[in-house]
């Protein structure tokens, strides 16, 4: 059975494609502007395989970047909870940096690091890092007084225990934020590839754009949608399994 995320995407994709075709036939546009269904199917058969590999390549970079930003956000949030002023400083800095479009910094990264894996990874991580950080700081800075009181008053509280309590109590919130930021990691990677990289589905879209080949772009979008949905489904599944396990223990 298809997961709801996947069939939601399929429905949206079908509606979008239907609108495009309605526009094509309603305004009598040529196949050069909007390809016919035959052309789209032909392109899918020809480029489906290579594009699928490109999507997997992009997905791998997005997952790596996502993991990197989760780890980094956890470390910074754990440090940020130490004192009120460090937490406040990190939170303010994160808000300000988040307000700045990271994509605008991407050319600098490509100039400095080249158009290889590092640049794509860094941009993907940067795009999903700040929303993650803000949520993580919120979670790790907020005391769970009714649990922590005992450990504080008996002198048993350690930083590991404090982090464990706060993470455990907010596991649902953390899972939701991680799933939400996964889309941003994927978007960041594709945008990075689109700007300057030489691999991934973003790069393929750039080539298709230069060729004004909308059929290729539609095929790429379809595969991106399915790939992203599958990643989100996996994360949701892992999050639910973790929560279920913690509750049943």
């Amino acid at each position: 059975m298809l997961h709801r995320r996947i069939y939601q995407f399929l429905i949206i994709y079908a509606i979008g494609l239907g609108l495009l075709l309605a526009l094509k036939y309603g305004l009598n546009l040529s196949d050069y502007v909007i390809p016919s269904p035959d052309e789209i199917v032909r392109t899918c058969r020809t480029y489906g395989g290579p594009y699928l590999l490109a999507v997997l390549n992009t997905l791998a970079v997005a997952v790596l970047g996502h993991i990197l930003s989760i780890c980094l956000a956890t470390v910074v949030a754990v440090i940020g909870r130490l004192t009120a002023w460090i937490g406040s400083f990190i939170r303010t800095a994160a808000y300000n940096i988040q307000a700045y479009p990271i994509v605008a910094v991407a050319p600098i990264i490509f100039i400095l690091l080249g158009d290889g894996l590092q640049s794509r990874l860094l941009i993907a991580a940067m795009i999903c890092y700040f929303p993650l950080l803000l949520s993580f700081i919120g979670v790790f800075s907020e005391p769970i007084r009714e649990i922590e009181h005992f450990y504080e008053s008996t002198g048993r509280m350690t930083w590991r225990l404090q982090v464990k309590i706060r993470a455990f109590e907010n596991i649902q919130k953390l899972t939701t934020v991680i799933v939400g930021s996964a889309t941003m990691a994927m978007v960041g990677t594709i945008v990075a590839e689109f700007i300057a990289a030489t691999a991934g589905i973003g790069y393929s879209i750039r080539i298709a754009l230069y060729q004004s080949d909308l059929a290729k772009i539609l095929v790429a979008l379809f595969l991106i949608g399915v790939g992203t949905s599958l990643y989100l489904v996996s994360l949701e599944w892992a999050g639910n399994a973790l929560q279920k396990r913690l509750k049943s223990l």
């Binding site: 009714e146 649990i147 009181h149 005992f150 008053s153 008996t154 048993r156 464990k164 309590i165 455990f168 109590e169 913690l246 509750k247 223990l249």
Partner: peptide
């Protein structure tokens, strides 16, 4: 001096006995 109040909770990752044994 220890102060305890009625809204306190034990952590949820282990059962009550395991928690008692730990502390």
């Amino acid at each position: 001096v220890l102060y305890t109040y009625n809204l306190e909770r034990l952590p949820g990752w282990s059962n009550v006995r395991a928690h008692f044994e730990e502390i």
